[in-house]
Simulated assay, not measured.
Amino acid sequence: MTTRRNFLASLVAVTASPRLGWAAVGSPAYIAAAQLPDGVHVLVGLDLAGAETFRVPLPARGHAGAAHPAQAEAVVFARRPGYFALVIDAGTGRVLHELMPPKGHQFNGHGVYIDGGATLVTVEQMAEGSAGRIGLWDVASGYTRIDGFATHGIGPHDVRLMPDGRTLVVANGGIETDPTDRTKLNLDTMCPNLAYLGAGGDLLEKVELDQELAQNSIRHLAVASDGRVGFAMQWEGEPGMGWPLLGLHRRGERPVLAEAPLADELAMKGYAGSVAFSADESEIAITSPRGGRLNRFAPDGRFVAAEAREDVCGIAPHPDGFIASDGLGGLIALGCEGARPLARHECAWDNHIVPL
């Protein structure tokens, strides 16, 4: 049987050759992790029509990733709690680097390149207690760990770079988990927050929800060009409550909770898996694979429409508005006239579509 160690040994690249750009691998618009019918995990490049531009193997299930802005390489993070992240050459499928979190840390599934691709930012937590950490890695030196600082919350999951190119926004989920599995330990004392951090880790602003929403874990982020932040939540309290699962925030202001009609809110089953602004930023949408539902809102939080789609989760901007993926291999485009099919692949798409 092929072990993960053997897989990595066969794929690690030892080369000093110049890195290729994304045009060399078909100029993909997105990357997404998936599982094939035979159980093999892969990273796939997709164009705007939903066609595959490249496919490379992964040694285990990928959750989300980060695409380098210039070089045809991507970081794929293990499913939370994760102990490895792979830097993959999208042209050859070779593993260029395997990143390991510092002792006592765990990767939490997301990251982002900053400084024009010179630095990789990773979201982490301390294994004991789940205190949030940001990791900084220098790309040019082979992804050397260079720094780290607190996220000012526990159980962080997502991070994005703000339009000023300097500020990070972090989704601190507020959940303490068991170090060895995903068991949640503090559901009665949760305190999620949205934290804005400076380049050196200084806390610029922290946004917390009202106490009645303390069990609404802030999980995923989308950032508009004007600095608006959309945050998707997952309700950890009593089921069937119908609390809003999308929040909108602009720095210096109070957050706005985007409410759908009760039936559409209940259909989400308390779980928003991904969030994205549309390409023209006239809408923002959240998905629920548990509810088979996609809810769309205006940027001020007004409900626009709902779409039913079995096991839908991944979502990203698309010229039509949005592109969404599901666990049955489907890709759809969503615009003002509703959904239209783009493509169907023989795979099960994982939770996220990452735009390049």
Rank of each mutant, 00 (worst) to 15 (best):
Ala72Cys: 04
Pro59Phe: 07
Gly39His: 13
Asp47Leu: 15
Ala67Asn: 06
Pro28Ala: 01
His41Leu: 08
Ala23Met: 06
Leu43Ser: 09
Ser27Glu: 13
Ala34Thr: 01
Ala64Asn: 12
Glu73Asp: 11
Val76Cys: 11
Gln35Asn: 03
Gly65Tyr: 10
Val42Gly: 04
Ala23Asp: 15
Ala66Trp: 03
Gln35Leu: 01
Val75Phe: 08
Gly39Phe: 13
Gly21Ile: 03
Ile31Leu: 04
Ala49Ile: 07
Gly50Ser: 10
Ala23Ser: 15
Glu52Val: 10
Tyr30Glu: 03
Ala16Phe: 08
Pro28Leu: 00
Pro28Trp: 01
His41Met: 08
Ala49Tyr: 04
Leu43Trp: 08
Pro18Asn: 02
Gly45Tyr: 12
Pro18Cys: 02
Glu73Gly: 03
Gln71Asp: 15
Gly50Thr: 09
Leu43Thr: 05
Val42Arg: 12
Ala74Tyr: 05
Val44Lys: 14
Leu48Ser: 12
Leu20Arg: 14
Val75Glu: 10
Ala64Ser: 15
Gln71Leu: 09
Ala64Arg: 11
Val44Glu: 10
Leu46Asp: 13
Val40Asp: 15
Val40Arg: 15
Asp38Gln: 11
Asp47Glu: 14
Glu73Trp: 14
Ile31Pro: 01
Ala24Asn: 02
Gly50Tyr: 05
Gly26Cys: 06
Ala49Ser: 14
Gly62Lys: 04
Leu58Ile: 09
Arg19Phe: 05
Gln35Val: 13
His63Glu: 07
Ala51Met: 11
Glu73Gln: 15
Ala66Arg: 02
Ala64Thr: 10
Gly45Ser: 11
Gly21Gln: 07
Ala29Ser: 14
Leu43Ile: 04
Pro59Met: 07
Pro59Lys: 02
Gly26Ile: 01
Gly62Gln: 04
Ala16Trp: 04
Leu46Met: 13
Ala66Ser: 12
Ala23Glu: 15
Phe54Glu: 08
Ser17Asn: 11
Val75Ser: 08
Ala64Lys: 06
Val56Asn: 02
Gly50Trp: 03
Ala60Phe: 14
Trp22Met: 09
His63Asn: 09
Val75Gly: 06
Arg55Ser: 08
Phe54Asp: 06
Gln71Ala: 15
Ala32Gly: 01
His63Ile: 06
Val42Trp: 05
Leu20Gln: 15
Pro69Trp: 03
Asp47Ile: 15
Pro57Trp: 04
Ser27Asp: 11
Leu43Tyr: 10
Val44Phe: 10
Asp47Thr: 14
Gly45Thr: 10
Arg55Lys: 13
Val40Met: 14
Val56Ser: 05
Ile31Ala: 00
Ala74Leu: 05
Ser27Lys: 12
Gly26Trp: 05
